[in-house]
């Protein structure tokens, strides 16, 4: 399953790293983060979605990603950047953030990541989804 790429990209390497760090935390199980290839696929798909949105939506999304990344060390109570923080610390910080008044930017990022993540056939299967025409297609 290949994801599209676009010239008009949000994929500045810094942004991609932040999104990857967030996706790993959001979709982690007790066994650890989901397969790296799946996270890469989600980020590439995200790039394509944003390339199809207007500049203001793109800017808003990028701002939300950076706002979440900046807030994570605050909620983790550790001065470590998101990308270098342990998976466990990221999960704790994001969980605290989701319960706070600072939740809206996190919701924006989580919503788009979820929409894409559960379109991946393996992720859909893992949550018991078998709705042919609504879901994943390779």
């Amino acid at each position: 399953m290949s994801a599209a790429t676009h010239d008009d990209s949000l994929q500045r390497p810094r942004t991609v790293r932040k999104l990857q760090a967030l996706a790993e935390a959001i979709f982690a199980t007790e066994a650890g983060p989901p397969p790296e290839s799946r996270i890469r696929w989600v980020c590439a798909e995200m790039d394509d979605v944003l390339a199809h949105s207007g500049p203001s939506a793109r800017t808003l999304f990028r701002a939300a990603t950076y706002a979440v990344a900046a807030a994570v060390p605050v909620f983790a109570r550790r001065p470590v950047p998101l990308e270098r923080m342990s998976l466990k610390a990221r999960i704790v910080a994001l969980d605290r953030m989701e319960r706070s008044l600072a939740a809206p930017p996190l919701l924006a990022v989580k919503a788009l990541l979820c929409i894409l993540y559960y379109e991946h056939p393996d992720a859909a299967r893992e949550v018991g989804f078998d709705g042919g025409c609504l879901g994943a297609r390779t």
Partner: peptide
Amino acid sequence: VPPGVFAATLPGIGPAHVARASQLP
């Protein structure tokens, strides 16, 4: 709504999120 939209509105991060998403059916 599609599974991803369900999941997006389920609270929780990491294992807590995945456990809830697994209740999708």
